[in-house]
Design a binder for these strands. Sequence first.
RNA 1: GGCGGCAUAGCCAAGUGGUAAGGCACGGGUCUGCAAAACCCUGAUUCCCCGGUUCAAAUCCGGGUGCCGCCUCCA
Length: 466
Amino acid sequence: MGLHVYNTLTRAKESFQPLVSNRVSMYVCGPTVYNYIHIGNARPAIVFDMVRRYLTYLGYEVTYVSNFTDVDDKIIRAAEETGEDVEQLAEKFIAAYHEDTEALGVQKADLHPRVMKTMDDIIAFIGRLIEKGYAYEADGDVYFKTHSFQGYGKLSDQSVDDLQAGARIEVGEKKQDPLDFALWKGAKSGEIAWDSPWGKGRPGWHIECSAMVKKYLGDTIDIHAGGQDLAFPHHENEIAQSEALTGKTMANYWMHNGYIKVEDEKMSKSLGNFILVHDIVRQFDPNVVRFFMLQSHYRNPINFSDELLQQAKSSYSRIGTFIRNAKHRLELSADLGEPANWQDTINGFRDRFIREMNDDFNTPNAFTVVFDFIKEANRYLENDHSSKRVLQEMLSLLKEWEEVLGVQFEQEEEVLDETIEEWIEKRNEARKNRDFKEADRIRDELQEKGIVLEDTPQGTRWKREN
RNA sequence: GGCGGCAUAGCCAAGUGGUAAGGCACGGGUCUGCAAAACCCUGAUUCCCCGGUUCAAAUCCGGGUGCCGCCUCCA
């Protein structure tokens, strides 16, 4: 079975067929840069980074675009508060975004377009929508005529009538209809603004993505992704704008990640119950955070707490422990004959992993495969003798998986401290003489320095306690 | 009011018709001078509740309960 992807548009898993074989175009809605990102913002970054990595692993050439919203009410407000200039503030949080996501193993997009730098395209896009009769100018603002687009609501499965009935916003003086939404907002005095055929102003929120997708990826793309809460209205509006203009399908696959909850409530900036990536990575290894996120399926909600992260940490360290132990063994093992079927066993695990990932990126099950493999490999280490080649192949399979999941299993191992080796030697001398008191003393002393010793039939190995 | 999601062991979490994966924690055992790591064994007669369909349901259908989200800025 090839790759199947859950498509929000059809509410079903579909066989994945890109527009051009071997190539995938992918657009992920990025953050509004007015603050440091919280772990809820980090989820789509991590999840779709994993999607990108897996597609790459399958051999696709992926073009990945993710925007920064750097012009918006919240940024303007934040800039007013700090007295900074809007652009400076945006720059600062863009840099912070890159720093935070990089720590979490997220690769940079091929392109990170910004609203400020896409202004001409946005204005042109709006202009053409007016020309085609899908939008109208109203006193310095421009609105999209929602009713004019057939199929509005198809992504979120809402009928225009129901939306109309449920619309809470009162009919703005300028809007012709409550469902219409802003493409261009006329500037209030003193605000940052750009010239346009409709006067000074700035773009509405949704139009930037439509313009960027079209400019950088084309009229129709393979995958468009973002958080579940963007499905409506943001993505719905994007579809309306783009498809009204081009008459073509905007994206073939729409993917949405579930959100992160704190005490069973959605984590969001507006609720104030958020945890910044900046802060959490000081408490936990970022790899643990990423592992934690990928241990749930990307579409399911995740609860977040220290306790759960602690659990994830224990779980995660099982993999690193194996790698360390296997490497210790590798140094000592000769090239003895390998078990006849090891190649098949390893290939079997690789295939299982792919099968799970092919099922709509089922990373929880992919980790089950990893753990099953670790168990099998640990059994192999129980043997008196091991083959170098088998050990190396086991380690390289884990490397392969690391690359796909973006989680580093192996802790950065500091350069071997000479004195630790000396202590170990001294202790082993004591053990040989059955002076266990001295041996334990040395072990305790090292323990206090965070060094844990483990005696094995193949000699003493050590690790740093984390 | 409209649309959608979730409910599986102490905790986390897969599983969408064939008789409950995996991880963490707990207990017993093996190994060890003692540990650690690892391995082995043990845990839901049962998947929120009540009906129904079926040879067979956690999985399908009907009803109910609880929780959550979107419909307004939001990943």
